[in-house]
């Protein structure tokens, strides 16, 4: 199946208020897309984690919010891109283990459990891109 993108919008994340704004927009889209309340909370919480990471650890960036479809499946894909220092050891961060970046790790590892597809691309000096997709169910 090929993924169809049915709508796409981009939002900046430069202030803390933008984190809340992105979260609200994702919640509204998930509801319109037919997500139940549990799936809506899961996707919205994931969006909140990733937006906050971009703002706190990434020095800001942007969020792309897309309605996607794959055959009969309907979902939402979120892309968060920041201009931060990047992550040298992604596996270690995803394990959520060590203290200086514990909040970063918790947000990333927790979000990975809330969505259906999770991709992260990061290396020192290049910033971080996280792409998540969730289909219409918890």
């Amino acid at each position: 199946m090929t993924l169809r993108v049915e709508s796409s919008a981009e939002y900046p994340i430069v202030r803390e208020a933008d984190v809340i704004d992105v979260r609200r927009r994702v919640r509204k889209l998930a509801q319109e897309r037919g997500f139940d309340t549990f799936a809506t909370a899961a996707l919205t919480t994931g969006a909140s984690e990733l937006a906050r990471n971009a703002w706190v650890h990434g020095g800001g960036g942007e969020a792309r919010v897309e309605e996607v479809a794959d055959g009969l499946r309907r979902g939402v894909r979120l892309t968060f891109r920041d201009r931060g220092p990047g992550i040298a050891d992604i596996e270690r961060v995803l394990a959520g283990g060590f203290s200086t970046i514990r909040s970063l790790g918790l947000g990333l590892s927790g979000t990975r459990r809330l969505v259906d597809e999770f991709e992260i691309d990061s290396s020192p000096g290049r910033g971080t891109v996280v792409v998540v997709t969730k289909w219409t169910r918890f």
Binding site: A41, G96, G110, T111
Partner: peptide, 14 residues
């Protein structure tokens, strides 16, 4: 705490 919030926090491992 709402049901959706409890489910989400546990699923995240928080």
């Amino acid at each position: 705490m709402r049901p959706e919030v409890a489910a989400t926090l546990v699923r995240m491992g928080y």
